[in-house]
Design a binder for these strands. Sequence first.
DNA 1: GGCGCAGGTCGATGGAGTCCATACTGAAGA
DNA 2: TCTTCAGTATGGACTCCATCGACCTGCGCC
Lengths: 149, 149
Amino acid sequence: MDSIDLRLIELLRENARSSYAELARKVGLSAPAVHERVGKLEAAGTIQGYRAEVDHEALGLGVTALIGIIEDSGADTDDVLAALRAMPEVESCYFMAGVESYQLTVRVGSIAELEQLIVRINRTPGVASTRTAIALSTKWENRPQPHLG
Amino acid sequence: MDSIDLRLIELLRENARSSYAELARKVGLSAPAVHERVGKLEAAGTIQGYRAEVDHEALGLGVTALIGIIEDSGADTDDVLAALRAMPEVESCYFMAGVESYQLTVRVGSIAELEQLIVRINRTPGVASTRTAIALSTKWENRPQPHLG
DNA sequence: GGCGCAGGTCGATGGAGTCCATACTGAAGA
DNA sequence: TCTTCAGTATGGACTCCATCGACCTGCGCC
């Protein structure tokens, strides 16, 4: 993991579809060398995958909300997590310090669907209560943090 | 925007580095046809970009936190946003309904850096107060929502 | 019907991906 | 100092992909 690896990661965070040849030109190596480095970063789990970023609104998922969950005392955390994972609307899930054990990012098509989702989460065994905040607009998301090296 | 476009988007959300030839095989079209469709989706802004997903811990950004911000009455929202955008640690920023005007996702290397970041945000003109919750672990993030079509 | 358009296939070709053998480089040990 | 060895880069070769142009097809509309 040297500065060239960090540069490759930064380039791939900006545009994951860059060709190896292009990456090679930018970091000053040959394409096979870049290919091998990226392969090792993937194998090591440093690069976990490549994702297209989409306009959720255009795909009918215009409502974004953040939901905090307070667990029942004595709830089975694995069961709660499994139930949340089974809900495709739940895009991200963090296990938090504090009163609210989980913080979710969810995407749905309408406020009505959000209501249904909240009801479903509240009915999940182990969930004591939820707190929902609706995002009126997304200023930015998943902005890659530039490297200082 | 038909079901083939949706399928292409889904495939690219799973693996943004798929070749056009591979996408073509999976959707049952020729590679040039896929190339044209993806180009149109990009031009329309439906596909906004392609990002590598990284292991933040491996890159020295092992601390993730969510910060809610309450604005001063009479704060200039644009100035607050510009100040937040200038902080590279702020990965995502939503404008929210509710008491807390903004909800941030931030990534830093240590609790000490988080403390400094919170201080900096609180000192930002227009910011009345903040509320920070620390993520102990990330269960999942940016999970692509499968399409129903 | 004939026309034009949107969107598809096919074929060609230049460039990219990827495997392999070889050469370089830096560190450890005789 | 010289040798060796591991790690990593390079260059060549071959395959596959990206991408352009030419042509085909189905459909709505004069």
